[in-house]
Simulated scan of single mutants.
Amino acid sequence: MKALQRITFNPEIMGGKPCIRDMRVTVGMIVGLMAARHTPEDILKAYPYLEREDIYEALAYAAWRVEEIEVPLASA
């Protein structure tokens, strides 16, 4: 996966949730809007400070995160 440059983490912004370019727009919000059948055009119209690439990078980040697996550590 290529490095994601638009997804930021800052404990001072939205409690450290993954956000778009240090704005108060979380990846979860973008994914939720898409899941509710809003188009990228709808989202860009509602949030004019976002860019189309922000939306696609948020989706790429979310897809990457759901593919993670947890590997249990051996107990001591």
Results as ranks from 00 to 15, higher is better:
2 K>H: 11
2 K>S: 12
2 K>I: 09
3 A>G: 05
3 A>E: 13
3 A>N: 10
3 A>S: 11
5 Q>A: 12
5 Q>P: 00
6 R>S: 06
6 R>L: 11
7 I>D: 01
7 I>Q: 02
8 T>A: 09
8 T>D: 08
8 T>C: 09
8 T>N: 04
9 F>T: 05
9 F>I: 12
9 F>P: 00
9 F>D: 01
10 N>S: 14
11 P>N: 13
11 P>R: 14
11 P>M: 13
12 E>R: 12
13 I>R: 06
13 I>V: 15
13 I>C: 04
13 I>L: 12
14 M>L: 15
14 M>N: 07
15 G>D: 12
15 G>W: 13
16 G>K: 06
16 G>R: 07
17 K>Y: 07
17 K>H: 11
17 K>P: 00
17 K>I: 01
19 C>Y: 11
19 C>A: 14
19 C>T: 15
19 C>Q: 07
20 I>Y: 10
20 I>H: 07
20 I>S: 10
21 R>Q: 09
22 D>F: 15
23 M>I: 07
23 M>D: 07
23 M>H: 10
24 R>K: 15
24 R>I: 04
24 R>H: 13
24 R>G: 06
25 V>W: 05
25 V>Q: 03
25 V>E: 04
25 V>D: 04
25 V>Y: 06
26 T>Y: 04
27 V>S: 03
27 V>D: 00
28 G>K: 10
28 G>H: 10
28 G>Q: 13
29 M>K: 14
29 M>N: 06
30 I>F: 06
31 V>M: 09
32 G>A: 07
32 G>I: 01
34 M>A: 10
35 A>Y: 06
36 A>F: 05
36 A>G: 10
38 H>W: 14
38 H>F: 15
38 H>D: 10
39 T>S: 15
40 P>D: 08
40 P>Y: 09
42 D>K: 03
42 D>A: 02
43 I>F: 02
43 I>K: 03
43 I>V: 02
43 I>Y: 03
44 L>C: 01
44 L>A: 05
46 A>Y: 06
46 A>D: 13
47 Y>A: 06
47 Y>E: 05
47 Y>I: 11
48 P>M: 11
48 P>S: 08
48 P>K: 10
49 Y>V: 05
51 E>W: 09
52 R>S: 09
52 R>W: 05
53 E>D: 15
53 E>K: 14
53 E>M: 14
54 D>E: 03
54 D>N: 06
55 I>Q: 01
56 Y>P: 00
57 E>M: 06
57 E>G: 01
58 A>Q: 03
58 A>Y: 02
60 A>H: 02
61 Y>G: 01
61 Y>I: 00
61 Y>Q: 02
62 A>Y: 05
62 A>E: 07
63 A>F: 04
63 A>T: 09
64 W>R: 15
65 R>P: 00
65 R>Q: 15
66 V>N: 11
66 V>L: 07
67 E>D: 14
68 E>R: 12
68 E>H: 03
68 E>C: 06
69 I>Y: 11
69 I>N: 12
69 I>H: 13
71 V>N: 05
72 P>K: 15
73 L>V: 12
73 L>F: 12
74 A>L: 14
75 S>I: 08
75 S>F: 11
75 S>N: 12
